[in-house]
Design a protein around this nucleic acid. Structure first.
Lengths: 193, 193
DNA sequence: CTATCATCTTGACACTGATAAGATGAAGTA
DNA sequence: TACTTCATCTTATCAGTGTCAAGATGATAG
């Protein structure tokens, strides 16, 4: 039980977690590095020992959040027993994550943040990569052409991503999860046109 | 040719247009009201005669941008000659708007901005409303059930909205428009499952 | 010609991100 | 033990921001 030791010990980690909690409640645009530092009981300049600037800090928080998002997606695919439903289950998991954490959506996918994470061929987007791999496997087993697989994959991810955007908007309080499942299942992705 | 008259004349309009141009180039998060005022040749407090605060200004710019976005969508539906293709053409128009103006996407649809525009039943979203009306008309003509229409409509809008999110990401330089058309057409929205 | 009042300027305030200079103390070295 | 080193943290300071109060301007109406 330390009583304010001069060296915090795990300040970097605590700063990130405090920032994450703050964004969960108030959103990125309200975040001030000085306030986060104060909440952690350190001076305003302390964070600069661990982060180059505010963008660097925001980036670290985003990395942290992206990891937790990816964890829930991977867990979902591992737990899914019915192989044929894995794509739609992955989609529901994706959407519900942002239904539960609406303020995360803008933060994770805003152009300002994502341009750090996307390479020039836009294939360095972790959730999209997971989708792509899963979809290619499922659809490939059914003998779909490569071009068709690509289109279906992008379509499936776009649908899910767009549903997430809706889920992150204010004022949705119906039984959204079951409707999301119905919507995703209402589109047949498995057959070529 | 006025030489700096004390009263600008149409400052409000010029501020909005300057803000729009700035966001087009640099994005919302870089925007400073003082800089916009300086670009317009007025003092830092001048905007406060026309806007309550920065949020109010941002909101006005967003309204302006939303109107121009809606204009291009409505024009698209009016110009579409082939009735059966109207939905997919509307989708392509939607997506390509953000392909041409990537920084507009976050600005128009970020939770921070959109919560001003969405009522509690989330049916006050102009582009979604246009989609809904169009889809209900097209799909209704084919005798689809009401529930199915709702699901297909949300699915179609989600797909298009998600594709827009991709289009607004950096590093997409292939022949995106034709691929977007293929992707949208690869999904059959007209038949119930 | 005068009064009104929206519009604009000046000057100030608190807050922010950022940096420099110095204080602290943990960990290694003699 | 005593000394050195160096990442970590504090204090002080800077420029830039949103915002407001007080006052200057001048278009417009009476």
């Amino acid at each position: 039980m330390k009583n304010k030791p001069y060296h915090h010990g795990e300040l970097r980690k605590v700063l990130i977690e405090t920032g994450l909690e703050f964004i969960h409640q108030y959103g990125e645009e309200k975040l001030s590095l000085r306030q986060i530092a104060e909440k952690c009981g350190v001076s305003n300049a302390a964070p600069y020992a661990h982060f180059k600037d505010k963008d660097d800090f925001i980036n670290a928080v985003q990395q942290y959040m992206m990891d937790s998002f990816m964890d829930s997606l991977v867990t979902c695919t591992n737990e899914c027993r019915n192989h044929s439903e894995i794509l739609s289950e992955l989609g529901v998991c994706y959407v519900m994550f942002f239904y539960r954490n609406p303020l995360y959506f803008d933060f994770l996918f805003s152009r300002k943040n994502i341009q750090i994470r996307l390479s020039s061929d836009n294939h360095n987007n972790p959730p999209f990569e997971l989708f792509r791999k899963t979809a290619e496997q499922i659809l490939g087993e059914r003998g779909m052409s490569e071009k068709n697989i690509r289109h279906k994959t992008i379509a499936m991810w776009s649908l899910v991503h767009g549903l997430s955007a809706i889920s992150a908007m204010p004022g949705i309080d119906v039984d959204w999860e079951s409707e999301v499942r119905d919507i995703i299942n209402s589109i047949d992705f498995s057959e070529p046109v």
